[in-house]
Write a protein that binds this DNA or RNA. Structure first.
Length: 424
RNA sequence: GGAGAAAUGGCAGAGUGGUCGAUUGCGGCAGUCUUGAAAACUGUUGAAGGUAACACUUCCGGGGGUUCGAAUCCCUCUUUCUCCGCCA
């Protein structure tokens, strides 16, 4: 998760102006980065010159020994030893400069797209689309955490016994509904051209670093300390890391992958109503879509993904709205993000069910995910991802919005997957 | 888990201390020939830093060491293969 040095070097003012949209004052840190960069290049030049000299000397020493000129060879050898000392000192200096520079760089968020609205709080997000009627519920309507008990669907208490809060147990028709949603989402994604992958749900440190979970968000992941592995917070991590250190062929773009995985999040610091019922869990299921796109096409790709996710919600007959996030509400790595929210009728509030983002080169830079351009030069690709979709809040919305005096109705499109059309 | 072997460019596979960033083959790209294609022939073909462009530097699984000099020797970690054990 990093900006490119050449970009900072060439367009510092633009970077500062754009980062201001995210309410990030970049000038001091970028100035420092560039200062270190000058230092770095200067040091590297000096080091290169020394190493060059040492390499030439080594060759001469070899030649002299071959010719039997031992005394002259020994003489040069001593000179070379002295060179080595100063070069190793310089190499150390270079390393520490690079480390310092890296430490600063990873603190700088991605520059938002110029399309991103200014703002600081969720209230400043721009509602760009809304679909469906907000349903009027009958007088006995309940929030989903009461429905799940009433219909014996989800046992939160049992999850506490087995594991802890935020690890619910789905039973009977609820378990079947989970499976139905996963299959429905995967079927739609593969039909839309996404390659289904089933990745590991634990990743190593390098992968967690590659998509930016480390070093900053370490506390948000479950860490398996014995083997130094992390439980994935989203399938984005393993799926995107498939392309770490890969140079793809330009004709392969766009690359489209999807995958279902459970997701694990510690959600430290959450409390109260926000975590009630299915609103926020430590373990939940999600189908993720990921695309790797040519830089010229990535915003078209983002719109395509946005339409795709909206289509899913429409098929599920859920009222939803699409928000273009303002600078202050965007994530660290995103250049442009659309959030999808479904309306939870019984809770009378919008629930975020998907977030679709273009990371431009920010992730690719860390991942070293590149392609060979038409000019023959390798350059960074753009990465995008989105949930399509996360299950718990979809389930919450389905239960609440579709409750009737007779029972909870299942949307038509899911019936072939569930095998029932109503929960009684 | 125990014993042994190995890790080199997109792939295969040479290279065991000195002009080796690396022979060669395949693949890719460009050209010759051809109406076009194939075949054949010729050339070209890794990445990163650096430069206006060169130069130059670094990279032979990762890390460390020996040496004037390491793909090559030593240590260590990881991974893969073979055999044995265990197991959904």
């Amino acid at each position: 998760f990093m900006l490119q040095l050449t970009y900072i070097r060439e367009k510092k003012d633009e970077a500062i102006a754009r980062l201001a949209i995210k309410n990030f004052d970049a000038k001091p840190i970028l100035d420092q980065v560039l200062e270190l960069d000058n230092d770095r290049r200067k040091t590297q030049n000096e080091l290169d010159a020394l190493l060059n000299e040492a390499n030439l000397l080594a060759k001469q020493v070899g030649d002299l020994y071959k010719q039997g000129k031992k005394a002259e060879g020994d003489d040069l050898k001593n000179k070379s030893v002295a060179l080595k000392e100063s070069s190793s000192k310089l190499a150390e200096k270079l390393k520490s400069i690079e480390e310092e520079q890296q430490k600063l760089l990873v603190q700088v968020p991605n520059t938002p797209s110029i399309k991103v609205p200014k703002g600081k709080t969720p209230e400043d997000n721009e509602n760009v689309f809304q679909e469906g009627e907000i349903p009027k519920l009958y007088s006995g309507a309940k929030p989903h955490w009461e429905l799940t008990t009433q219909y014996d669907l989800i046992d939160f208490e049992l999850g506490v016994k087995l594991t802890g809060a935020g690890f619910p147990v789905y039973k009977g028709k609820a378990a079947r509904l989970q499976r139905a949603l996963i299959n429905f989402f995967l079927d739609r994604a593969t039909a839309a051209g996404y390659l289904e992958v089933q990745p590991p749900i634990m990743v190593n440190e390098t992968s967690a670093y590659g998509t930016g979970q480390l070093p900053d968000k370490e506390g948000q992941m479950y860490h398996v300390t014995g083997d130094s592995l992390y439980l994935i917070p989203t399938a984005e991590v393993p799926i995107t890391n498939i392309y770490r250190d890969v140079i793809v062929k330009p004709e392969q773009l766009p690359i489209k992958c999807c995958g279902y995985t459970p997701c694990f999040r510690r959600e430290a610091g959450s409390y109260g109503k926000d975590v009630r019922g299915l609103n926020r869990l430590h373990q939940f299921d999600k189908v993720e879509i990921v695309q790797i796109a040519h830089p010229d096409k990535s915003y078209d790709t983002l719109e395509e993904m946005r339409n795709y996710v909206g289509g899913l919600l429409k098929e599920l007959e859920l009222p939803y709205r699409t928000l273009k996030l303002c600078g202050g509400d965007m994530s660290f790595g995103s250049a442009l993000t659309y959030d999808f929210e479904t309306y939870s009728a019984a809770q009378q509030k919008w629930l975020e069910v998907s977030s679709v983002s273009n990371f431009e080169t920010f992730q690719a830079n860390r991942l070293k995910l590149r392609f060979k351009g038409s000019d023959g030069k390798t350059q960074l690709a753009h990465t995008l991802n989105g949930s399509a979709l996360a299950l718990p809040r979809i389930v919450a919305s389905l239960l609440e919005n579709n409750q009737t005096a007779e029972g909870i109705k299942i949307p038509k499109v899911l019936v072939p997957y569930t095998g029932f059309d109503i929960i009684k």
